[in-house]
Computed example of a mutant assay.
Amino acid sequence: MPGRCPRTPPGPALRAAGTALLVPGYTGSKEDFIAMLQPLADAGYRAVAVDGRGQYETEGPDDEQAYEQGELARDVLAQARAVAESGPVHLLGHSLGGQIARAAVLLDATPFATLTLVSSGPAEVSPAQQQKIKLLGDALRVMDMGRVWDAMRALDPPEDADDARSDREDLRRRWLLHRPAQLLATGRQLTVEPDRVDELRALRPALPVHVVSGVRDDTWPVPLLDAMAERLGAHRTRVDGAEHSPNTDRPVETARAVGAFWDGVQSRD
């Protein structure tokens, strides 16, 4: 399924370096990568960030089965084929997007030069996050998206109330255009995802893997991500000053780390 995406313009140098395909996480959208686009372009990469099926500006049905992980993984493969003319495709997924990206390469790794998992763990999310997802799912089944948004904001810690009004309105607009069926289906995936690390390791060394996180993470504890990287024999980066979303917490530093990883892989080829 095609999706709307911000991208950097594909000049000659960018085509030579390759394309980064960026897949957002649960409740996220392509805008979660906006601050990384220019740094990646400066590093010589064409960057394409996408909304997944049913996320923000990409259409999606009201049938939860349409958002099964295999369906979403096949969307990623279609997107990779669409951008592959610009050179090697470096697949990057944040959180839920990392698990969808992992499913995509396990279906067919041939379109991809590398896989980067950003704050995306080996299996299901932590028990505390499972409880939050259950509460959100229960609310989505009885309330419209606007009322759910208001309820979530009422639970925010006081310091979050200082967010700029324009930023808060932008997040609200994105939230309202998500399909509830997408949130219900992908939330359930996050709570039951099996450990597929051994399957992914079987693709090594043909598919280099990079595990990126902040220095704190309540969704998958950082030591768990360290252990996953070790099991995979993957490159590992912790981004100082970042938590679950290094792409928004420290976008320049995150772009620098993933660009250096891609450069290193291409220099070995």
Rank of each mutant, 00 (worst) to 15 (best):
E159Y: 14
V239F: 09
V192C: 08
V209R: 06
R173K: 13
L190Q: 12
A229V: 01
M228T: 09
R147D: 12
R201T: 12
R165H: 06
D217N: 07
L176G: 03
D167L: 14
R188C: 06
A151F: 09
A242R: 02
D198S: 14
P208V: 05
V212R: 07
V209T: 13
V197I: 15
V211I: 03
D217Q: 05
P221D: 08
R179H: 08
L176A: 04
M228G: 05
T191K: 02
H210W: 04
W220R: 01
L184S: 01
R188A: 08
D167K: 14
M145H: 02
V222F: 03
V211N: 05
L183M: 11
D226E: 14
V142F: 04
G214W: 00
M145R: 05
A202G: 03
R236H: 04
W220F: 07
Q182M: 13
A185V: 11
L224T: 15
V142A: 02
R236K: 12
R147F: 04
A234P: 06
H235Q: 14
M143N: 06
D163V: 01
R201M: 07
L190F: 05
D240I: 10
P180V: 01
L155Y: 06
A202I: 13
W175D: 00
H235T: 14
R172S: 05
V211P: 06
L184F: 06
R179D: 04
D150F: 00
W220N: 01
D198V: 13
A185N: 10
W220P: 00
W149D: 00
Q182K: 09
H178E: 05
V222M: 04
V215A: 13
V212F: 07
D167E: 07
L183P: 00
R147E: 10
L203C: 08
D150S: 02
L171T: 11
E199D: 15
R204Y: 02
M152Y: 06
S166T: 15
T186H: 11
L225M: 11
G241H: 02
P180W: 01
A161Y: 09
V222N: 05
D156H: 10
A151T: 15
R238A: 13
A227W: 10
L225D: 14
P223M: 14
V215E: 15
M228V: 10
V209E: 13
P158D: 14
D217M: 00
D240M: 09
L171F: 08
L176R: 07
E199H: 00
E199W: 04
E159C: 10
R168A: 15
R153C: 11
P157V: 08
D156Q: 15
L184R: 05
R174G: 04
G187A: 02
R168N: 08
M143V: 00
P194E: 04
R165I: 14
M145N: 04
W220M: 00
L171Q: 15
V142G: 05
P208S: 07
E193G: 09
D150R: 04
L176K: 02
P157L: 11
R216Y: 07
A229C: 01
R172Y: 01
P157Y: 11
E193C: 11
G233T: 06
T186L: 03
G233R: 08
G214S: 02
Q182H: 10
A154W: 08
A161D: 04
L155N: 12
D170L: 13
D150Y: 03
R216A: 14
P158T: 03
